[in-house]
Design a protein around this nucleic acid. Sequence first.
DNA 1: ATCACAGATGGGAGCGCTCCCACACTACCT
DNA 2: AGGTAGTGTGGGAGCGCTCCCATCTGTGAT
Lengths: 351, 351
Amino acid sequence: MASHGARGRGGGRPTLEEVAARAGVGRGTVSRVINGSPRVSDATRAAVEAAVTELGYVPNTAARALAANRTDAIALVVPEPETRFFAEPYFSDMLRGVGSQLSDTELQLLLIFAGGDRERRRLAQYLAAHRVDGVLLVSVHADDPLPDLLAQLEIPAVISGPRSAAETLTSVDSDNYGGARSAVEHLLLGGRTRIAHITGRLDVYGAQRRVDGYRDALRDAGREVDELLVEPGDFTEEGGRRAMTLLLRRRPDLDAVFAGSDVTAAGARQVLREAGRRIPDDVALIGYDDSAIARHMDPPLTSVRQPIEEMGRAMIDLLLAEIADRRPPLSRGPARRHAVLATELVTRASS
Amino acid sequence: MASHGARGRGGGRPTLEEVAARAGVGRGTVSRVINGSPRVSDATRAAVEAAVTELGYVPNTAARALAANRTDAIALVVPEPETRFFAEPYFSDMLRGVGSQLSDTELQLLLIFAGGDRERRRLAQYLAAHRVDGVLLVSVHADDPLPDLLAQLEIPAVISGPRSAAETLTSVDSDNYGGARSAVEHLLLGGRTRIAHITGRLDVYGAQRRVDGYRDALRDAGREVDELLVEPGDFTEEGGRRAMTLLLRRRPDLDAVFAGSDVTAAGARQVLREAGRRIPDDVALIGYDDSAIARHMDPPLTSVRQPIEEMGRAMIDLLLAEIADRRPPLSRGPARRHAVLATELVTRASS
DNA sequence: ATCACAGATGGGAGCGCTCCCACACTACCT
DNA sequence: AGGTAGTGTGGGAGCGCTCCCATCTGTGAT
């Protein structure tokens, strides 16, 4: 019944006040129970909980947000067009980690794509309105103004993949340096001596770190780094083909390739095949990311796995800490946190 | 500068009242300008807009939501685990359509997965709290309690793919009947006479409609429907293999197969190959969905394309209408709407 | 008995907005 | 001149919560 207008003053949802009346206590007490404050006697708590159940009370989020100045929502901001989001398993894994870590909280996760200019403006407006308590930033380019905007608005934020060694935002990353080292060490152990590296986009910090890892692994094994064996790529398949072509021309005697991504490795593989090189007999090949294509490649590709789901979980942990820090009296100083999670070399037939 | 505590009474965000003071007008007038009411003189409007810009005023969403009893958010509810969401391009296309149609509004889109029991409970809580103004429901099974919950809570909702001919929720669908007809008619036109159909899951209304279309196309062409040529499938590849095996056993002389999905067609193709049938020479094959695998199959698969992105847009249109209807005095009666969008047969080498 | 103190409780004040009623003020009719 | 519609405009009264202070009660120390 109450057919037309559940909005009417009578038929609507129960309020705190109504619960209080029903339980025979004051408004403040009900609020305390709802929010799990310890300063409530057991008897009172039970009475209030009964009233809540009987009335089917559900707190009004808007009222709470207004009074408490928080939204109980955080945003996962993807500065990419939606297409890429769906195409790359990275995001899916990340989302799973984030979601799972969020599931024991009351926080709502918003997914926001900000690929185009229009979306960027919307996002800026959105953040200015403080519609979220915190922001998770994934896949951010070095020159992106978003981190600065976040800092200026004083919105807690965590970035996945720091933009540089001097990242100011709290960050989560996988151990790109260690991952690259383990790949190269594995190749050295296999007796390879002329190991090439097709890098990722070098304006991405993680790609730089992989180059560092590659270099140090060789140096620590007592080898010179032959600069002719290092060729910049851009994470793409086409980039892999181009780089591989150049490398083969410069160093036809190379016997291993460490690629900046699985897709790059796929491109390299194609060129190697066309040049009559057998994998892994003539040239060993290692990729990065351990994506689906690594498993399905012929031969299956050895690759460095990043714990993306765990990174998602770590991001939530850090963000929650960040948010908690700003809640009490005055902000507890910029105790920036940076988490770095271990990678794992997944060995397959290509190496 | 206002370093600690942007929450303090002084350093925070400007409010309506402050804008009003600055512009030398009353609170109500500023509200009118912000909300685009026509009952404001041009001069006043200009003054207010100037003040808004100078102060960098952004409305407080929580306050607005509380006072106006709306959230300016709608949810896209996916009753599937996230994995499927990412695996199937259906959702990605749908999301694109929804997003684009939403971009000229002030509405925020929330993406909610409700695959497991736990998520379902969270969702129920979420809806009970009326945290969204409306809901978009995709991929709902026939026995799902969600639509009833929505109706009970009086939350505007639109479903993609009605659950039956008697769907009570406003719905958007593609013309499954017409799509199936066009596929069968194409096969008849190509001179095929013994056309088999591997259906989709028959508890999905759309799959039933496709069977209807298949039958009527044959009848209208003056042919009997041979029930031995109809075998239930379940949209999967494995189901396609199983059904195709049965069909070949029962009717070794069949010369065409219309499958309930592209994936099913892929399963069927495999069995046909193993049985030594050539496609399309011996047996023509048509799928449904026009997904990526249709293009990449060997030979490329003729398939029925559904305008998924447009369906997404249509869902938003209907939902907005639904929401608008319930806003004024009393709800304008249950004028249920059902949109049906045309499909298109994409012809390739398999038929 | 008296005082001090901690725990439990009630309720006022406000968060920033929308809604709506009342009040100008103007223009146009009788 | 008096009426009668309109327009614009100001501001009170909430929306349903959280925060915090005042109050009350019971306990143990003096």
